[in-house]
């Protein structure tokens, strides 16, 4: 302000204009380079270009038992890392089987529907368990400074370093630092590749569901199902509409609707859905076979290390 009116005063303003003009040019360029890079990194390339060379090690995913060991080992390594930095961590127990079931298309398990409706009780139960979890209580009891330090030690001080371009679209990112990353690096070796491939594979689940819900066979199978639930007093066209309609009906209403949904699904919708889910799952696995193979290879490689970690804990 003091130099206003002197020749020197004009210089900063000119510089500001230069910066703005540079941004005006650079931003669209940056945007176009991102969009330009996009198709090549996802849907356009995978199946056609790489298909001819057969996979030398066509290993499937690890077994459920091996996965349990991987999860356990990661927990133990994370806890050791946090303890080393002066924090406490309690290991949990696997959730009940009922909570692991999800019905992304239609509830087709009548017994489950009788017990849980659309599952709002399970969401509430998880919420209660979260609040009473020793880790949550421990962190809530820390001072704001210590809490910040805890989260930085666990999740990384800066949320940068790992990146996965998802088949469904966006870019998912995470810190490459912190105890979670350290534990995963020790188990899987190549953390960046494991993050990328495991996030891509996990994302296929959502993509598969989107394809099933857009499949003409699904739409066709909905018609008789909708007729069936109408006879039971629910005037809706889709399971999603049925869920929305019970929002204010309370627990009994939710269960009645879910049971009707599951009963009517037995007449064909459930079978059609299972078949579509399997078919689109196979197609996506083939389309992203490189990422699927990379994830499987890294997990198979990690199992012996994980077993050693778990065995050491038992001794």
């Amino acid at each position: 302000m003091r130099v206003r009116g002197t020749p020197g005063a004009r210089r900063p303003r000119r510089r500001a204009v230069v910066v703005i003009v540079t941004l005006a040019v650079a931003l669209p360029l940056a945007a176009s380079s991102i969009t330009g890079a996009w198709p090549g990194s996802t849907s356009a390339a995978p199946p056609s270009t790489v298909a001819p060379s057969p996979d030398p090690a066509p290993a499937g995913p690890v077994t459920a038992e091996d996965r349990r060991i991987l999860v356990r080992a990661e927990s133990l390594l994370t806890r050791d890392c946090m303890t080393r930095d002066g924090f406490q961590l309690w290991l949990g127990t696997p959730p009940p089987a009922d909570e692991l079931l999800s019905f992304p298309y239609v509830v087709d398990d009548i017994a489950w529907a009788r017990k849980h409706g659309f599952g709002s009780d399970l969401v509430a139960a998880v919420d209660v368990r979260r609040r009473t979890d020793p880790n949550q209580r421990y962190v809530s009891g820390l001072s704001p400074e210590r809490r910040e330090a805890f989260l930085a030690t666990l999740n990384g001080a800066r949320p940068e370093g790992l990146e996965a371009r998802l088949p469904s679209g966006g870019v998912m990112r995470r810190s490459a630092e912190g105890c979670t990353s350290e534990a995963q690096r020790r188990l899987y070796g190549d953390l960046a590749e494991w993050y990328r491939s495991s996030k891509v594979v996990a994302d296929l689940t959502g993509l598969r569901q989107r394809r099933v819900l857009a499949d003409p066979a699904w739409t066709a199978a909905l018609r008789p199902w909708a007729g069936c639930v109408r006879q039971r007093g629910f005037t809706v066209d889709t399971p999603e509409q049925l869920r929305q309609s019970v929002g204010t009906r309370g627990r009994a209403g939710e269960i009645a609707a879910a049971v009707a949904e599951a009963r009517c699904a037995q007449d064909g919708l459930a079978a059609t859905t299972r078949a579509l889910d399997a078919r689109h799952g196979d197609e996506l696995t083939a389309a992203y076979h490189q990422e699927v193979a990379a994830r499987n290879r890294l997990e198979h490689g990690a199992v012996p290390r994980a077993r050693a970690v778990v065995d050491a804990e038992h001794e």
């Binding site: 994370t78 949990g92 959730p95 368990r129 979890d133 949550q136 805890f150 989260l151 979670t180």
Partner: peptide, 8 residues
């Protein structure tokens, strides 16, 4: 998601 370590 900058959550606490958890089963959930």
């Amino acid at each position: 998601n900058n959550g606490v370590y958890h089963d959930y």
